[in-house]
Design a protein around this nucleic acid. Sequence first.
DNA 1: TATTGTTATACTCTATAACTATA
DNA 2: TATAGTTATAGAGTATAACAATA
Lengths: 148, 148
Amino acid sequence: MPAKHQDPGLVDGLFQLSFKLQGTLARIAAEHDLSIVQVRLLGILRDREPAMLQLARYLELEKSSLSGLVDRAEKRGLVERVPSPDDGRGSNIRVTARGRKLSRVIEAEAAAEVAKLVGVLPSSERERLGGLVAQIVAGIAGAPDSRL
Amino acid sequence: MPAKHQDPGLVDGLFQLSFKLQGTLARIAAEHDLSIVQVRLLGILRDREPAMLQLARYLELEKSSLSGLVDRAEKRGLVERVPSPDDGRGSNIRVTARGRKLSRVIEAEAAAEVAKLVGVLPSSERERLGGLVAQIVAGIAGAPDSRL
DNA sequence: TATTGTTATACTCTATAACTATA
DNA sequence: TATAGTTATAGAGTATAACAATA
């Protein structure tokens, strides 16, 4: 088990940064009357058309939580339920053009905010940071559980 | 305005990492029947005894949201309202021994999880990451608004 | 009058348990 | 029977608006 006697500054810094990022995303989402989870929903649907249960797995939520989430998004015309061709019990969830557009706007705004945050670093350091973060994220993806 | 033509991998990576960290913290907190915001509350009270309005500013919440939050924490014996000596209208919020202990346990568990995540990096790279993150966090602290 | 905090109300998000409809 | 999804219900978290008590 490596990584003992960790510099406490790293853990604190990473959490502080993650709170800042989440706060930023929440603020931007709220400016468009969305929550973070709704943004995640739209993001997942960018390149998928999953059934409710699959969506629940992606978001790590109970299926019953999905019903309301999708209801509210559907009521706003951001997603739609499409009857499954394979299974008469199920629906697939599809993002609408409106949802896709909104998702792109929010992503762009969030990216701009993050660019400001990391803008304190010179370009070469940003690249290095990107590499380190990518390694950690790759480690997450390769870990026992992982379906972010 | 610097930081244009950003590597999109950095923004995505940072958000993915922040979702992972928040998810980890939420899971650990839930194992102790707490939410992230309750953990933040206890963390803020570690070295402060603020009035409700100050606490609201720290957490970036409306004062009315604080009432319920503190109610629930108080009901569990994690914090207590102390009448303000200066102002008959107000109370100061103080963490109890029980709240402090719980907060420490959760922090330790969270730190251990983060250590695992960054454990994919060799020690020298972890140090470098710590430095980069510290610079960004310092930039946040120095920015126009900031009261994390 | 202004400020501190609570209460009333409403909505989102989440879970558990019970249910419906299809497989 | 088993599975996909919804509904019923409950509770946390949040905000806005109205209120009480104190300054």
